[in-house]
């Protein structure tokens, strides 16, 4: 009772500027956690815990058919280091990713710049360039599979111009090029639209100013456009690299990793080991390697952004 009696008095005595317990700061603590809670719970349940399980599996020899699951310690890791197929797989992955990222970003930016010219009908072209993005990936790949045949549409077209086209999916180099190109045209529209949006955000006055300073078109592009759209370049390059490391359906449909092992990228090799050869423990080990690579590349890019990305917060 005394306590109760005292309390209002103390409140009254307190200077009015005394902040309540629920300051904006404290509220933000709660609100922040509440807002990220669904996402965090989802990531923990659907990514972190499964990833932990994958680590656990990687320490085992798991024969799915026999139902055996035996602890083997670091054997899978040792096997990975000794695996003669790992080198070619990493090389194919590097070639695919590097090729795709360079071609994708250049073509996307090139098309975006073209479309950014104040011309009639660019909306039509923009729609056409974007259209493969909305075509089902499997459908798109199947169609390209037909076109890339030795007697398919592409060589038929080359034939008309008098070129004897290569057997695209059967040569080491051409198969890799084919897989890159199929993925390129499927998704370049996405990056193009992002670039276009960024380009349209570049204030016209800046170009005007540069023009008055006598800068050539190329110099204007280098010194005005590129820096101003650099945040978009960062975003698109991260997305494209991460996406390129996960390419699967195209390889599965077009080349199955061949000819030889020229298009057996890491994800496809992982898939083969785990799902086709039933070496799930070993597959888990490869997937951890893939995870580490993706992680390292992303961290690297994120670190480097301060060097070249303009006004990143």
């Amino acid at each position: 009772m005394t306590l109760l009696a005292e309390k209002p008095a103390s409140v009254l005595r307190r200077p009015p500027e005394r902040a309540p317990y629920w300051t904006m700061r404290r509220r933000d603590q709660l609100a922040g956690w509440l807002m990220v809670a669904p996402q965090l719970a989802g990531i923990v349940a659907f990514v972190i815990v499964p990833l932990g399980l994958v680590v656990w599996y990687s320490l085992h020899e798991w024969n799915v058919l026999a139902g055996t699951f035996d602890y083997v310690g670091g054997e899978n890791y040792q096997a990975l280091l000794d695996d003669p197929r790992l080198g070619p797989a990493l090389r194919a992955t590097g070639l695919f990713s590097a090729g795709l990222v360079v071609l994708n970003l250049s073509l996307a930016l090139f098309l975006a710049v073209l479309l950014n010219q104040k011309l009639r009908g660019t909306v039509v072209f923009r729609t056409l360039f974007f259209s493969p993005v909305v075509v089902t990936l499997v459908a798109w790949t199947i169609v390209w599979g037909f076109l890339l045949q030795d007697n398919g549409g592409i060589n038929g077209f080359l034939d008309l111009v008098g070129i004897d086209g290569p057997n695209w999916l059967r040569g080491d180099t051409t198969a890799m090029i084919s897989v890159i190109v199929v993925q390129l045209f499927k998704n370049v529209g996405l990056n193009m639209v992002l670039f276009l949006a960024a380009l349209q955000g570049v204030p016209a006055e800046l170009y005007e100013a540069a023009r008055i300073d006598g800068a050539s078109a190329w110099a204007r592009f280098r010194r005005v456009t590129v820096p101003l759209i650099s945040p978009t370049i960062l975003l698109t390059s991260i997305l494209t690299i991460v996406g390129s490391l996960q390419v699967f359906a195209q390889i599965a449909v077009l080349t199955q990793g061949g000819p030889g092992t020229s298009t057996t990228v890491l994800v496809y090799y992982l898939y083969q080991q785990a799902f086709q050869f039933h070496h799930f423990g070993y597959g888990a080990t490869i997937s951890l390697l893939l995870f580490v690579i993706v992680l390292a590349l992303t961290v690297l890019q994120w670190r480097m952004r301060k060097r070249w990305v303009f006004h990143e917060a």
């Binding site: 199955q256 061949g258 000819p259 030889g260 092992t261 083969q272 086709q276 050869f277």
Partner: peptide, 18 residues
């Protein structure tokens, strides 16, 4: 036994024949 792995390995090694 282990046919899938054999299948793929032979497939890759046989490609130069074609």
């Amino acid at each position: 036994t282990g046919y899938a792995e054999l299948q793929q390995t032979v497939r890759a090694a046989l490609d130069p024949l074609w």
